[in-house]
């Protein structure tokens, strides 16, 4: 879930663009030109993966996967999230162009956090596969929860009328956290079983 068009006041939208532009500038500098096509392909795969709906009682939810994106793409997950959210706004009218800066910041920073958390565990406990998967799952869930809290804070900053909506927003993300954690764990389990070099090679995890 991200903030839609029409909610944020222009000052916050512009602020979002400025902070996102700074982080994108820093992260994209570290991406070499050779890696750009590869990162784009993985971004496309993630984009399509968010169409996979998970049934939850009477409703179905769609995944965020920003934690997993951080784990697989590393630092370049930030510009990748920018591209994915831009395309989502333009092709499906989800989110929007004006809140794009804020949305990218709120999803991109948790992706970077989960990347560092995962990388730290991976380099420290290389042999303990179960622990790596567990921390991976945890960081996947954590990323969603942090995104939810950050978006809720932005909503509260936008106006006190949004407070209840912001709480609702944050709580849904905290519920989503558990499902996303489980899913990230299972996807990591699958990848480490079938093609471990996707995680272990340093080609994409910059």
């Amino acid at each position: 879930m991200h903030i839609s068009e029409g909610i944020l006041p222009p000052t916050i939208s512009i602020g979002g663009y400025i902070v996102s532009a700074v982080v994108t500038g820093i992260t994209i500098k570290k991406v070499s030109l050779d890696d750009v096509p590869k990162i784009s392909l993985v971004t496309a795969a993630f984009f399509v993966s968010t169409f996979i709906h998970i049934k939850l009682g009477p409703t179905s939810i769609h995944l965020t996967l920003n934690g997993l994106m951080g784990i697989i793409l590393g630092i370049s997950s930030f510009p990748a999230i920018l591209v994915a959210l831009f395309l989502q706004a333009v092709l499906f009218q989800h989110g929007g162009i004006l809140p794009l800066g804020i949305n990218v910041f709120c999803f991109g920073i948790p992706a970077l956090i989960s990347h560092y958390l995962f990388q730290f565990t991976f380099t420290k406990f290389k042999a303990k596969l179960l622990l790596i998967k567990l921390i991976g799952g945890l960081s996947g869930g954590l990323a969603v929860a942090i995104s939810g809290v950050m978006l809720a804070l932005v909503l509260i900053m936008s106006g006190k009328e949004f407070t209840t909506f912001a709480y609702f927003f944050a709580w849904t993300h905290i519920v989503l956290m558990f499902i996303e954690s489980l899913l990230t764990f299972l996807v990591l389990n699958f990848i480490l079983k079938v093609k471990p070099e996707l995680i272990k090679s340093s080609k994409l995890t910059l």
Binding site: V36, A44, V83
Partner: peptide, 13 residues
């Protein structure tokens, strides 16, 4: 770089 990324991602989606 961002433009190339957008065009590639769009294609591969």
């Amino acid at each position: 770089k961002l433009i190339i990324m957008i065009l590639f991602t769009y294609r591969y989606i």
